[in-house]
């Protein structure tokens, strides 16, 4: 670079164009490759099994006549071990098409996925 010769500027310019072209191609291919990588990540990131598990735990809590200790257990351990803010409660029994069911509200938020549900159980 030092003691540069001023000749051959066309070659340098063409080199620059080719380099720019490669740069944009690389940019595009790079973006497309990301899609395949995130399929498995997407599965891991979405806490489907966690939410299903929580629902069952909440139904068990309702079955255990809404023991407040169980509710405290689930809320505290969720926050500590699963980094998820969880809240749930069951209302009074109502007549839903001939059956006595409680409206159960479940809220789940682990910072990425938020889940809210009201289910009659």
């Amino acid at each position: 670079m030092a003691c540069m010769n001023e000749d051959g500027q066309w070659i340098v310019l063409m080199g620059l164009l080719v380099a720019l072209g490669l740069f944009f191609l690389a940019l595009i291919i790079n973006q497309s490759a990301l899609v395949g990588q995130t399929t498995a990540e997407g599965v891991l990131e979405f806490p489907k099994n966690d939410i299903r598990d929580l629902r069952e735990a909440v139904f068990n809590y309702v079955d255990a006549s809404q023991n407040t200790e169980v509710q405290k257990d689930i809320i505290a351990i969720s926050l500590e071990r699963k980094n998820a803010v969880v809240s749930f409660s069951a209302g009074e029994q109502q007549d839903v098409s001939g059956r006595l069911l409680r409206p159960v509200t479940i809220h789940y938020n682990n910072g990425v996925t938020e889940y809210d549900e009201t289910v009659y159980y």
């Binding site: 099994n49 598990d53 069952e56 735990a57 068990n60 255990a64 200790e69 351990i77």
Partner: peptide, 24 residues
């Protein structure tokens, strides 16, 4: 992987009363 387990009263975790524990 984790699973919530609701233990009946007289359990090794917390002693008396129904409790929920997390199995990891």
């Amino acid at each position: 992987v984790t699973r919530w387990v609701q233990l009946p009263s007289a359990n090794p975790y917390g002693g008396v009363g129904v409790r929920a524990v997390l199995v990891e």
